[in-house]
Design a protein around this nucleic acid. Structure first.
Lengths: 175, 175
DNA sequence: CATTAATAATTGATCAATCAATAATTAATT
DNA sequence: AATTAATTATTGATTGATCAATTATTAATG
């Protein structure tokens, strides 16, 4: 077989492929062979970069939380007090559109029991929560804790609405 | 091996065992052997009642939604308008306490892609949503659609808080 | 030519599902 | 009532497939 030319980003390419495949078929049913195929490399070569499939999942989750935190941080850095919350909502919607697979993967991980994965999810949630609440408080928004809870809760329902293809779930206009 | 005496509830016993085991280790990593052990029967005997492991999952999910709908229906049938919403919240919390595993299983299924499972989840969510919104509307609660969304959203965040052991996530008292 | 990047081939374990056999129960027959 | 026949409930043993992970090789690069 013709060999693939070397790449500096091999590791990132594998993570991106993994996120997609894990989201498409589910982490457990997903095979490392499929991930490799998506990344355009051979299956064993994944294990040059990740000791186990779970390591790969862990890295994918860390990346997805990092992206989210960076997106929110950018908004917080430049939004006016009045528009802060809707802009954070907007940022989340943009992530859901541009990185749907990462959200789908996070959803899977929310129900996993592997201690390592639980730890990463705890850390990710705590970081996001702290960031949002701090921003609300900073902006002088009333009842920041409560507003943060509602913000996160809506996000989680929004995920389900997307994953199960139930747009009605997010309808809120009472006429 | 000494045979187990016949039981009329075999099927329900298997479903209950499956819910527990699926919740404890995850649906995919869970083996039919573990489910059988929990149910106190032999592994192959599961397949007398369920053609596939997925069939068993499907039945478990249907059961879990039925329980939830029944609990909410009972509250709706007897609650005063003023206390309707808090009582529905109370009913949900009681389910989370008494049937934690069913909630954990629903969470897993929220991110699954198997068409059959997606269908069951869609139907379950739609039924719950319709039930709650109808009750809010019936009770003359203002903005029933919006209130339903918030109710469901809180429920979903509450699930995550439970599954990831992050009680802080549901703290809402601003002092 | 030595090092690094990559693949091919293989393995060992796991598990859903099948199949054939047996224990328990019920029904029929004396 | 005892005996037998038929049916149902349940298990033991096995299989065929799948897959993460390892090892041994080969191609590229500087």
């Amino acid at each position: 077989m013709a060999r693939k030319p070397a790449s500096v980003n091999r590791k990132e390419e594998i993570v991106s492929a993994a996120v997609e495949v894990f989201a498409e078929v589910g982490y457990y049913p997903a095979t490392t062979a499929k991930v490799a195929e998506r990344a355009g490399i051979s299956q064993p070569y994944i294990f040059r970069f990740f000791a186990t499939k779970e390591d790969l999942l862990a890295e994918a989750l860390v990346v997805s939380f990092r992206r989210m935190v960076e997106a929110f941080t950018a908004v917080i850095g430049q939004a006016e007090t009045e528009t802060l919350e809707p802009e954070l909502v907007g940022a989340y919607i943009r992530i859901m559109e541009s990185h749907r697979s990462e959200i789908l993967l996070q959803m899977q991980a929310q129900a996993m029991v592997e201690p390592r994965i639980v730890g990463i999810m705890q850390e990710g949630f705590r970081e996001v929560r702290t960031l949002i609440e701090g921003a609300f408080r900073q902006a002088g928004i009333d009842k920041p804790k409560q507003r943060t809870l509602i913000f996160l809760a809506r996000g989680m329902l929004c995920n389900i609405s997307m994953s199960l293809d139930l747009p009605d779930l997010m309808e809120e206009e009472d006429v």
